[in-house]
Amino acid sequence: MKAPLNPSTTRVGLAQKLGPLLGLGMIVIVLSMISRDFLSFTNIFNVLRQISINALLAFGMTFVILTGGIDLSVGSILALSGAFSAGMLAGGMDPVLAVLIGVTAGTVMGTANGVLVTKGRVAPFIATLATMTVYRGLTLVYTEGRPIAFDNDVFAMLGKGYFLEIPIPVFWMLGTFLILSFVLKNMTFGRHVYAVGGNEEAAMLSGVRTHRVKIGVYAISGFFSSLAGIILTSRLSSAQPTAGTTYELDAIAAVVLGGTSLAGGRGWITGTLIGAMIIGVLDNGLNLMNVSSFYQQVVKGGVILLAVLLDRSQKS
Protein backbone atom coordinates (compact mmCIF):
# COMPACT_ATOMS: atom_id res chain seq x y z
CA MET A 1 0.00 0.00 0.00
CA LYS A 2 1.49 3.31 -1.07
CA ALA A 3 0.79 6.47 0.83
CA PRO A 4 -1.31 8.61 -1.49
CA LEU A 5 0.91 11.33 -2.85
CA ASN A 6 -0.61 14.70 -3.06
CA PRO A 7 1.38 16.37 -5.79
CA SER A 8 0.59 19.90 -4.66
CA THR A 9 1.77 19.64 -1.05
CA THR A 10 5.24 18.46 -1.90
CA ARG A 11 5.89 21.45 -4.12
CA VAL A 12 4.46 24.22 -1.99
CA GLY A 13 7.11 24.01 0.72
CA LEU A 14 10.01 24.93 -1.52
CA ALA A 15 8.06 27.41 -3.65
CA GLN A 16 6.88 29.12 -0.47
CA LYS A 17 10.43 29.47 0.69
CA LEU A 18 12.03 30.50 -2.60
CA GLY A 19 9.25 32.78 -3.84
CA PRO A 20 9.82 35.73 -1.49
CA LEU A 21 13.59 35.53 -1.93
CA LEU A 22 13.29 35.52 -5.74
CA GLY A 23 10.90 38.45 -5.54
CA LEU A 24 13.34 40.43 -3.40
CA GLY A 25 16.20 39.54 -5.74
CA MET A 26 14.26 40.72 -8.78
CA ILE A 27 13.32 44.04 -7.21
CA VAL A 28 16.92 44.62 -6.12
CA ILE A 29 18.25 43.87 -9.62
CA VAL A 30 15.73 46.13 -11.31
CA LEU A 31 16.32 49.01 -8.88
CA SER A 32 20.10 48.74 -9.11
CA MET A 33 19.87 49.00 -12.88
CA ILE A 34 17.65 52.07 -12.69
CA SER A 35 19.44 53.91 -9.90
CA ARG A 36 23.20 53.85 -9.44
CA ASP A 37 22.96 54.99 -5.83
CA PHE A 38 20.83 52.03 -4.87
CA LEU A 39 23.55 49.46 -4.19
CA SER A 40 25.91 51.88 -2.43
CA PHE A 41 27.12 50.97 1.06
CA THR A 42 25.40 53.94 2.66
CA ASN A 43 22.12 53.30 0.94
CA ILE A 44 22.01 49.60 1.87
CA PHE A 45 22.45 50.41 5.55
CA ASN A 46 20.06 53.28 5.19
CA VAL A 47 17.44 50.83 3.93
CA LEU A 48 18.21 48.34 6.67
CA ARG A 49 17.82 51.04 9.29
CA GLN A 50 14.54 52.14 7.78
CA ILE A 51 13.08 48.65 7.79
CA SER A 52 14.19 47.83 11.33
CA ILE A 53 11.05 49.35 12.86
CA ASN A 54 8.68 47.48 10.55
CA ALA A 55 10.71 44.28 10.89
CA LEU A 56 10.45 44.33 14.69
CA LEU A 57 6.69 44.78 14.50
CA ALA A 58 6.43 42.07 11.83
CA PHE A 59 8.49 39.56 13.82
CA GLY A 60 6.05 39.77 16.72
CA MET A 61 3.16 39.75 14.28
CA THR A 62 4.50 36.51 12.78
CA PHE A 63 4.09 34.76 16.14
CA VAL A 64 0.54 36.05 16.49
CA ILE A 65 -0.41 35.11 12.92
CA LEU A 66 1.14 31.64 13.32
CA THR A 67 -1.40 30.95 16.07
CA GLY A 68 -4.16 32.04 13.71
CA GLY A 69 -4.58 35.47 15.31
CA ILE A 70 -3.82 39.06 14.29
CA ASP A 71 -2.56 42.08 16.20
CA LEU A 72 -3.81 45.44 14.96
CA SER A 73 -2.64 47.30 18.05
CA VAL A 74 1.12 47.21 17.33
CA GLY A 75 1.27 50.78 16.04
CA SER A 76 -0.54 52.12 19.10
CA ILE A 77 1.63 50.10 21.49
CA LEU A 78 4.67 51.53 19.70
CA ALA A 79 3.38 55.05 20.25
CA LEU A 80 2.37 54.68 23.91
CA SER A 81 5.59 52.88 24.96
CA GLY A 82 7.68 55.46 23.14
CA ALA A 83 5.73 58.24 24.82
CA PHE A 84 6.24 56.69 28.26
CA SER A 85 9.99 56.39 27.74
CA ALA A 86 10.21 59.93 26.40
CA GLY A 87 8.15 61.24 29.29
CA MET A 88 10.42 59.54 31.83
CA LEU A 89 13.52 60.92 30.11
CA ALA A 90 12.04 64.40 29.95
CA GLY A 91 11.47 64.09 33.69
CA GLY A 92 15.17 63.37 34.13
CA MET A 93 15.02 59.63 34.67
CA ASP A 94 17.93 57.29 34.02
CA PRO A 95 17.76 56.12 30.35
CA VAL A 96 18.08 52.42 31.24
CA LEU A 97 15.12 52.71 33.56
CA ALA A 98 13.16 54.67 30.96
CA VAL A 99 13.71 51.90 28.42
CA LEU A 100 12.68 49.26 30.95
CA ILE A 101 9.48 51.12 31.69
CA GLY A 102 8.75 51.42 27.97
CA VAL A 103 9.16 47.72 27.20
CA THR A 104 7.32 46.69 30.35
CA ALA A 105 4.38 48.85 29.31
CA GLY A 106 4.43 47.28 25.82
CA THR A 107 4.52 43.76 27.23
CA VAL A 108 1.65 44.51 29.59
CA MET A 109 -0.43 45.92 26.73
CA GLY A 110 0.31 42.84 24.61
CA THR A 111 -0.58 40.55 27.51
CA ALA A 112 -3.87 42.40 27.88
CA ASN A 113 -4.60 41.64 24.20
CA GLY A 114 -3.87 37.98 24.83
CA VAL A 115 -6.11 37.83 27.89
CA LEU A 116 -8.97 39.40 25.92
CA VAL A 117 -8.53 36.87 23.13
CA THR A 118 -8.28 33.80 25.40
CA LYS A 119 -10.14 34.41 28.66
CA GLY A 120 -12.49 36.98 27.14
CA ARG A 121 -13.01 34.91 23.98
CA VAL A 122 -13.02 38.00 21.79
CA ALA A 123 -12.00 37.44 18.16
CA PRO A 124 -8.40 38.68 17.73
CA PHE A 125 -9.37 41.15 15.01
CA ILE A 126 -12.01 42.77 17.20
CA ALA A 127 -10.02 42.64 20.43
CA THR A 128 -6.95 44.32 18.95
CA LEU A 129 -9.04 46.74 16.89
CA ALA A 130 -10.51 47.93 20.17
CA THR A 131 -7.21 48.08 22.05
CA MET A 132 -5.60 49.81 19.06
CA THR A 133 -8.07 52.63 19.65
CA VAL A 134 -7.74 52.51 23.43
CA TYR A 135 -3.91 52.56 23.40
CA ARG A 136 -3.88 55.37 20.84
CA GLY A 137 -6.31 57.32 22.99
CA LEU A 138 -4.12 56.79 26.05
CA THR A 139 -1.15 58.05 24.06
CA LEU A 140 -3.02 61.24 23.22
CA VAL A 141 -4.05 61.63 26.85
CA TYR A 142 -0.51 61.08 28.13
CA THR A 143 1.14 63.38 25.60
CA GLU A 144 -1.72 65.87 25.68
CA GLY A 145 -1.55 65.62 21.91
CA ARG A 146 1.91 67.21 21.72
CA PRO A 147 5.32 65.69 20.96
CA ILE A 148 7.46 64.97 24.02
CA ALA A 149 11.02 66.14 23.43
CA PHE A 150 14.02 65.20 25.55
CA ASP A 151 17.77 65.42 25.48
CA ASN A 152 19.76 62.33 26.39
CA ASP A 153 22.88 61.13 24.56
CA VAL A 154 22.77 57.55 25.82
CA PHE A 155 19.14 57.09 24.76
CA ALA A 156 19.81 58.74 21.40
CA MET A 157 22.40 56.03 20.64
CA LEU A 158 19.68 53.34 20.53
CA GLY A 159 18.16 54.65 17.31
CA LYS A 160 20.69 57.08 15.90
CA GLY A 161 24.04 55.58 16.78
CA TYR A 162 26.49 53.57 14.71
CA PHE A 163 28.67 50.63 15.65
CA LEU A 164 31.43 49.64 13.17
CA GLU A 165 29.77 52.08 10.77
CA ILE A 166 26.57 50.07 10.90
CA PRO A 167 23.43 51.73 12.29
CA ILE A 168 22.55 50.35 15.70
CA PRO A 169 18.86 49.59 14.84
CA VAL A 170 20.18 47.03 12.35
CA PHE A 171 21.70 45.14 15.26
CA TRP A 172 18.41 45.27 17.13
CA MET A 173 16.66 43.83 14.10
CA LEU A 174 19.17 41.07 13.35
CA GLY A 175 19.55 40.13 17.01
CA THR A 176 15.80 39.83 17.40
CA PHE A 177 15.60 37.84 14.19
CA LEU A 178 18.21 35.33 15.39
CA ILE A 179 16.61 34.89 18.79
CA LEU A 180 13.07 34.49 17.46
CA SER A 181 14.20 32.08 14.72
CA PHE A 182 15.77 29.97 17.40
CA VAL A 183 12.63 30.09 19.53
CA LEU A 184 10.42 29.00 16.65
CA LYS A 185 12.72 26.30 15.40
CA ASN A 186 14.24 24.84 18.53
CA MET A 187 12.11 25.61 21.54
CA THR A 188 9.01 23.92 22.89
CA PHE A 189 7.25 27.29 22.94
CA GLY A 190 7.84 27.69 19.20
CA ARG A 191 6.54 24.21 18.48
CA HIS A 192 3.49 24.95 20.59
CA VAL A 193 2.86 28.10 18.55
CA TYR A 194 2.71 26.07 15.34
CA ALA A 195 0.57 23.39 16.98
CA VAL A 196 -1.97 25.89 18.33
CA GLY A 197 -2.24 27.55 14.92
CA GLY A 198 -2.47 24.26 13.07
CA ASN A 199 -5.15 22.69 15.26
CA GLU A 200 -5.95 24.23 18.61
CA GLU A 201 -8.15 21.34 19.79
CA ALA A 202 -5.53 18.71 18.99
CA ALA A 203 -2.85 20.83 20.67
CA MET A 204 -4.97 21.18 23.81
CA LEU A 205 -5.63 17.43 23.87
CA SER A 206 -1.89 16.83 23.58
CA GLY A 207 -1.33 18.74 26.80
CA VAL A 208 -0.39 22.11 25.29
CA ARG A 209 -1.53 25.02 27.48
CA THR A 210 -3.13 26.77 24.54
CA HIS A 211 -4.21 29.89 26.45
CA ARG A 212 -0.76 30.39 27.81
CA VAL A 213 0.74 30.07 24.32
CA LYS A 214 -1.69 32.61 22.88
CA ILE A 215 -1.18 35.13 25.67
CA GLY A 216 2.54 34.56 25.12
CA VAL A 217 2.46 35.49 21.44
CA TYR A 218 0.53 38.71 22.08
CA ALA A 219 2.96 39.58 24.87
CA ILE A 220 5.87 38.98 22.48
CA SER A 221 4.18 41.18 19.89
CA GLY A 222 3.68 43.88 22.52
CA PHE A 223 7.28 43.63 23.71
CA PHE A 224 8.79 44.07 20.26
CA SER A 225 6.32 46.82 19.38
CA SER A 226 7.53 48.77 22.38
CA LEU A 227 11.15 48.10 21.41
CA ALA A 228 10.35 49.50 17.96
CA GLY A 229 8.70 52.48 19.69
CA ILE A 230 11.81 53.18 21.73
CA ILE A 231 14.07 53.02 18.67
CA LEU A 232 11.77 55.33 16.73
CA THR A 233 11.56 57.76 19.64
CA SER A 234 15.32 57.75 19.95
CA ARG A 235 15.75 58.39 16.23
CA LEU A 236 13.34 61.32 16.22
CA SER A 237 14.62 62.66 19.59
CA SER A 238 10.99 63.00 20.59
CA ALA A 239 7.84 60.91 21.01
CA GLN A 240 5.07 61.78 18.56
CA PRO A 241 1.47 61.14 19.66
CA THR A 242 0.58 59.88 16.19
CA ALA A 243 3.72 57.75 15.73
CA GLY A 244 3.13 54.32 14.24
CA THR A 245 -0.30 55.04 12.78
CA THR A 246 -1.09 52.35 10.12
CA TYR A 247 2.21 50.59 10.87
CA GLU A 248 0.21 47.42 11.59
CA LEU A 249 -0.61 47.22 7.90
CA ASP A 250 3.01 47.19 6.78
CA ALA A 251 3.78 44.60 9.45
CA ILE A 252 0.97 42.31 8.28
CA ALA A 253 2.04 42.84 4.68
CA ALA A 254 5.61 41.79 5.53
CA VAL A 255 4.37 38.61 7.21
CA VAL A 256 2.10 37.71 4.30
CA LEU A 257 4.77 38.53 1.68
CA GLY A 258 7.07 36.18 3.55
CA GLY A 259 4.70 33.29 2.96
CA THR A 260 3.16 32.88 6.40
CA SER A 261 -0.44 31.69 6.24
CA LEU A 262 -3.07 33.94 7.79
CA ALA A 263 -4.92 30.76 8.75
CA GLY A 264 -2.11 29.88 11.14
CA GLY A 265 0.14 26.89 11.64
CA ARG A 266 2.34 27.55 8.64
CA GLY A 267 5.10 30.05 8.11
CA TRP A 268 8.58 31.14 9.09
CA ILE A 269 10.29 34.20 10.44
CA THR A 270 12.98 34.35 7.73
CA GLY A 271 10.15 34.93 5.27
CA THR A 272 8.98 37.84 7.37
CA LEU A 273 12.46 39.39 7.30
CA ILE A 274 12.50 39.06 3.51
CA GLY A 275 8.97 40.47 3.35
CA ALA A 276 10.02 43.49 5.41
CA MET A 277 13.02 43.94 3.09
CA ILE A 278 10.81 43.84 0.00
CA ILE A 279 8.65 46.62 1.40
CA GLY A 280 11.64 48.66 2.55
CA VAL A 281 13.55 48.27 -0.70
CA LEU A 282 10.48 49.28 -2.70
CA ASP A 283 9.96 52.41 -0.60
CA ASN A 284 13.59 53.33 -0.89
CA GLY A 285 13.86 52.59 -4.61
CA LEU A 286 10.77 54.57 -5.46
CA ASN A 287 12.13 57.48 -3.41
CA LEU A 288 15.46 57.36 -5.25
CA MET A 289 13.55 57.38 -8.53
CA ASN A 290 11.60 60.43 -7.36
CA VAL A 291 8.26 58.70 -7.75
CA SER A 292 5.55 60.74 -6.08
CA SER A 293 4.39 59.38 -2.76
CA PHE A 294 0.88 59.02 -4.18
CA TYR A 295 2.08 56.59 -6.83
CA GLN A 296 4.31 54.84 -4.31
CA GLN A 297 1.26 53.57 -2.48
CA VAL A 298 -0.24 52.24 -5.69
CA VAL A 299 2.96 50.38 -6.53
CA LYS A 300 3.34 48.96 -3.01
CA GLY A 301 -0.22 47.68 -2.91
CA GLY A 302 0.18 46.25 -6.38
CA VAL A 303 3.31 44.34 -5.39
CA ILE A 304 1.58 42.83 -2.37
CA LEU A 305 -1.34 41.73 -4.53
CA LEU A 306 0.98 40.31 -7.16
CA ALA A 307 2.90 38.31 -4.57
CA VAL A 308 -0.23 36.81 -3.07
CA LEU A 309 -1.68 36.01 -6.49
CA LEU A 310 1.54 34.28 -7.58
CA ASP A 311 1.48 32.26 -4.36
CA ARG A 312 -2.13 31.22 -5.05
CA SER A 313 -1.43 30.12 -8.59
CA GLN A 314 1.43 27.94 -7.38
CA LYS A 315 -0.80 26.22 -4.87
CA SER A 316 -3.66 25.38 -7.21
Partner: peptide
Amino acid sequence: KDEGLVLPL
Protein backbone atom coordinates in the same frame (compact mmCIF):
# COMPACT_ATOMS: atom_id res chain seq x y z
CA LYS B 1 -8.42 15.16 11.87
CA ASP B 2 -10.13 17.44 14.39
CA GLU B 3 -8.65 16.23 17.65
CA GLY B 4 -5.79 13.86 17.04
CA LEU B 5 -3.49 15.52 14.56
CA VAL B 6 -2.18 18.94 13.66
CA LEU B 7 -2.54 18.49 9.92
CA PRO B 8 -0.13 21.16 8.64
CA LEU B 9 2.68 19.77 10.78
